[in-house]
Simulated assay, not measured.
Amino acid sequence: MRSNEVAKLAGVTVRALRHYHQLGLLPEPPRQTNGYRDYSPADVARVLRIKRLAALGFPLSRIGTVLEEMDTPKSRTTAGNDARDAGKNESNTGNAAADAAPSPHDALEELDRELALEIERLQEQRRTIAELRAEHLDPDLPVRFARTLRMLAGADVLANASAADRTALIVAGHLYDDEELDELERVVERISSENLVESMRELDDRLATLAPDAPESQRAALAEDSLEVLAPIIACFDAANWLRPQTDGERLLDEITFGSYNEAQQDVCDRIERNIVAFLATSPSQATPQPLDPDVTS
Rank of each mutant, 00 (worst) to 15 (best):
P73W: 13
A97V: 15
T72C: 11
S75G: 08
D82A: 12
S103N: 04
E69S: 07
N95I: 12
G57C: 12
G57K: 09
A86W: 05
A98G: 08
A98E: 08
K51D: 07
P73I: 14
D85K: 08
T93K: 12
G64F: 02
S61K: 11
M70E: 14
D85W: 08
R62K: 15
A97P: 06
N92R: 02
R76G: 06
T72I: 10
P73C: 14
A55Q: 13
A97K: 14
F58W: 04
R76I: 12
E90K: 13
G57F: 09
K74M: 11
R62T: 10
A97R: 14
A98Q: 10
A98T: 00
V66N: 02
T93M: 12
A83I: 15
T78Y: 09
A55I: 05
P102H: 07
K88A: 06
D82Q: 10
K51Q: 11
T78E: 11
I63Q: 00
T93V: 09
G64K: 05
P73D: 14
D99C: 09
A101E: 11
R62E: 15
L67F: 06
A83L: 15
E90T: 15
A86G: 04
R62C: 12
F58I: 03
E68H: 09
D85A: 08
N92W: 02
R52N: 05
G64R: 07
T77Y: 06
K88G: 03
P104S: 03
A55P: 04
G64C: 06
R52W: 06
P102C: 07
A101F: 13
A79L: 14
E69N: 08
S75W: 12
S103A: 08
E69W: 07
D99I: 13
S103I: 02
G87F: 04
S75D: 14
L60P: 00
S91R: 08
V66A: 06
K88W: 09
S75Y: 12
P102Y: 05
G64Q: 04
G87Y: 02
E90F: 14
R84L: 09
F58R: 00
G64H: 01
D85C: 00
A98I: 00
L60T: 01
L60E: 02
T93H: 12
R76S: 11
N89V: 12
M70P: 01
P59I: 08
P59T: 10
